[in-house]
Simulated assay, not measured.
Amino acid sequence: MPLDTQLNSLGFAKPPAETRVVVAMSGGVDSSVVAAELAREGYDVVGVTLQLYDHGAALAKKGACCAGRDIHDARRVAEEMGFPHYVLDYENVFKDAVIDEFADSYLAGATPVPCIRCNERVKFKDLLETAKDLDADCMATGHYIQRKMGATGAELHSAADANRDQSYFLFSTTREQLDYLRFPLGHLRSKAETRALAARHGLSVADKPDSQDICFVPDGNYASVIEKLRPGAADPGEIVHADGRVLGEHRGVIHYTIGQRRGLGIGGLNEPLYVVRLDVENRRVVVGPKEMLATRTVPVREINWLGNGGFADAGEHHVSVKVRSTRPPTEAVIRPLSATEAEVELLVAEEGISPGQACVFYENGTSRVLGGGWIWRGY
């Protein structure tokens, strides 16, 4: 490429009008602002919204994502800004790739993160391929994360606004996907900036509340969803102290998570007790003192590596990791066991680490996301 070639804001050496970009539109303010901004800059914008589950049930649910109300809002933004908009029926794909695994993971005693699987298996897989079929040069989303060009190609970086950063939910983005994706909001310093842009464009969604993380779980009641999908999943069993004492009866393992203290129904004891293990096979909820929750060793598999070189080639990796989306990164050493498995040693013990959660890797001293994997065994 000649040195004097001018790149547009999406990184292509041609005018915006000749650059087609598919915008994944959830119907919320973030993706709406992305679409509106790119349309204002003169790009050939095509909006696409995925119908992920039943319209009727979702219309009555405030804060739902990718259902009836949001599809209406996305279509309205496209009309306001004057670009085409399509709705794709992905209900079956979403159920097979996300919802079923969510239910099965809970039944196995894990604490899944379905938003990661949705990005990995639906939005950044099937929708991305649809964008290519539409001859788009790239696909843009409203995620708060940054794509930066490094010495060896595109890199993934945390968002400028730490309070909005979504890197934990996007660790499984592959290098090939990263080449094609764009995240125009990642550099913004606050959600207020996003809403100001929406107001500037006169978007009808400018003041729309943020959607909740798990779009298909009404009111955060995971158990009711799982019971509906897997009848008989909430069979009762024993609540057992780690020392073997039977303390009471629970109403189904799916109602409990590692680290839980409230709602155990075993009052009257002299010590505060926490859920330290879920024995699914024997339908037992095992409780113990808080110190039993602390661990420094985290087994991780299905690793997606975005760092330089091969994951298993360089020996140990000294990084920072997040073992839960709400926790700050903590220093750790990754010891690869294969190209996709590793043992992560935390320098300071963390409490409540649960199988089914993600362990996301960050480069020390920078905002770069080095990938991550899935925690697969509890302690």
Rank of each mutant, 00 (worst) to 15 (best):
A35L: 02
L38W: 08
Y43S: 09
Y53A: 14
K61N: 15
C66G: 09
R69I: 15
V77M: 03
P84V: 04
E91G: 08
N92K: 13
N92C: 03
E101W: 13
A108Y: 00
A110T: 02
T111D: 15
I116R: 06
R121S: 01
V122E: 09
A131H: 00
K132Q: 15
D135S: 13
H143L: 03
K148F: 08
T152N: 15
G153N: 06
A154S: 13
L156H: 04
D161E: 04
D161A: 01
N163T: 10
S167A: 11
F169C: 02
S172Y: 13
T173D: 01
T174G: 11
Q177A: 09
D179K: 10
R182N: 02
L188P: 02
E193L: 03
S211P: 06
S224A: 08
R230V: 07
A234C: 14
D235G: 15
D243Y: 13
R245L: 12
T257S: 14
Q260N: 11
R261I: 11
G268H: 08
E271A: 12
L278W: 01
D279H: 01
R283K: 06
V285D: 07
A294L: 13
W305N: 10
G307V: 04
G315C: 04
H317V: 13
V319C: 04
V319M: 05
K322M: 11
T326E: 15
R335G: 05
E363D: 09
R368Q: 07
G373V: 05
